[in-house]
Design a protein around this nucleic acid. Structure first.
Lengths: 189, 189, 189, 189
DNA sequence: AATGAATGAGTGTTCATTCAT
DNA sequence: CATGAATGAACACTCATTCAT
């Protein structure tokens, strides 16, 4: 509910009703509404951690194999509305809860970015252009999918354009491969 | 303030203080807090409209010239914190204010996406791969920049990684160009 | 704890913790918080009864011997913080618990006052001034000591003046003796 | 109401009703219930200050004239229930509000005690017994009247013995005079 | 038009009380 | 008998909203 309506707009009474307990029961387990929110946010986040912090090794290999696998990780996610909502919640409440922003930054966003940057860097068949910032490369890789995810989350309730994330992943991976291997191939030519 | 703290967490008393008027004065001009929010959101959004709805013609030309120009439009934006905050606000409140989502979708998001899709489609030197969805191409083009924008907006308050949007724009445009012109070039080879 | 913090400010959870039982256990023995309070107050009060209701006979004798003994009964009391706190509790809660006020009045306050009044009345060497109310005499006798007791109880927690009750008792008894035997002595002169 | 029912047992809704304002109005003027209580306690106390802190000069003169005047100051007080209730409140809440105890100690209790001690000390016709603590003398002087005041306040609600404070003041002053001037007179004899 | 004092419905929080185990 | 998890009525406190001036 926090993810759906935001922290302030979520009433504990509704939370209690949805949890099928009384309002008082919440306070048996959480000191304040904020404490509950932090716990929820942390837990929701924790479930993401496992995926975001995946050992990069399983992604090592030629870029042409690794890249599609990287982007396709986002394909399954939009199916579960939960993840969309959590990302939205973090974006919405980051300013009001800087410590949560910190955790999300340190334990979700940056690990994900660095993992992708690492995978690409380790990829052997890539021409090493030292001018390229590997972290910005990560933005190039997952940015479109993140944007699509947020597009869905934002316009969920209304009738509008719904990007086909699977198609996007395939198409984007292909373009990226072309771009990243571009010079390399031309060199070989 | 709505953009910074969200609708619910923004108190009219604070708004009044910042506007150097009394709380009562707000009600001289706006029926309710929600009416004020809608007005603010619409106006903030309206300022974006002009740019987003730009006639695509000025972007026509060879992709190698047009693409860098498209992505570089995002370079100036993060400088003004306002735009970041507005995007964040829309994402945060879209669920609670579907009509705003509607407006943002119809008058900002889709025009921007379609404009970019159009520019690319009209680009002569692109090999026409009919399997490619032009709208998804737009995601590929601006997704990384949108993601960088949101990264900044979200982790604004904390000390963390700050993507260099200008470098990202340049680098991403180059990669995209490579990818999009890939087959074409090889054909020419 | 009731004596320290008052009825309303005392939480049963704290009582339970201090008694090393669970909150629920209290309700095995007492119907309500009020019932517990009454029981506690009655018992604390009961322990005082024995002394307050002492047969006055043991105090009979010449006033010069009896008076110091009467006031010195208060000397030992302030040592035990409990008694101070109980008096404070009665004063604090008398309004909210009239029945406790009743009991305290009938079984503690008045017996004590009447005992002292009786002792003084029976004292042979006192000139019988019929205009003197014996009960008011009791106030004259123990008032200063009661005040000292309450002074201690009230300003217990802060760093302030602490009356030396023993010195007060001795000094006050001496003054009273002078005053009560005044005419008598002058007569004898 | 705080004086009558204590801090915790006083509901702001009742306070509001008695003040003929809404609950919210209280919060226009006071941050919290505690702030309201402190303000009330301070003000109630402030009204006493003028009397307690009276310049002692007006009481200077022969003890036989000054003493009756000192004790008779308490005669008027019990008539107004307010003062009784305030003293009761202080005794009841001193533990929960140490800072109020501090103020009451510094600005009411001790000034009163020291004033009386000073008056007696300055009194010329008193034999100077250096062994006597002047502050304890103050207890001897006003203790009975304080006790009578509290007796009334405590057993206000029930039907019991009501000390005649006026008679007590007269009688106690007379006894004290006898006791304090005792040796002196005998010397002169 | 602008104010700011007053409002009261709404919400977070407390805590005496219950009861299945 | 003892527990502690659960309760919900009660209460402190907030804040959008009103309105006389």
């Amino acid at each position: 509910m926090f993810a759906e309506k935001g922290f302030a707009a979520t009433r504990l009474e509704d939370v209690a009703r949805r949890a099928d307990v009384s309002k008082g029961t919440i306070y048996v387990y959480f000191e304040t509404k904020e404490a509950l929110f932090r716990a929820v946010a942390r837990e929701a986040l924790g479930k993401r951690l496992s995926r975001a912090g995946d050992p990069g090794t399983q992604f090592d290999g030629p870029l042409s194999e690794v890249l599609p696998r990287l982007v396709s990780r986002f394909v399954g996610i939009p199916a579960e509305t939960r993840a969309q909502a959590i990302v939205r919640m973090v974006i919405a409440e980051a300013h009001n809860f800087p410590d949560l922003a910190r955790i999300w930054h340190d334990e979700v966003a940056m690990p994900l970015i660095d993992q992708i940057a690492g995978v690409i860097e380790r990829s052997q068949d890539l021409d090493d252009d030292p001018s390229r910032d590997p972290r910005l490369l990560a933005f190039s890789v997952i940015g479109p999918l993140v944007m699509a995810l947020l597009h869905r989350a934002t316009f969920n309730a209304i009738d509008g354009f719904v990007p086909d994330v699977e198609a996007l992943a395939a198409q984007h991976a292909q373009i990226l491969l072309g771009g990243l291997l571009d010079k390399h191939k031309r060199k070989n030519n």
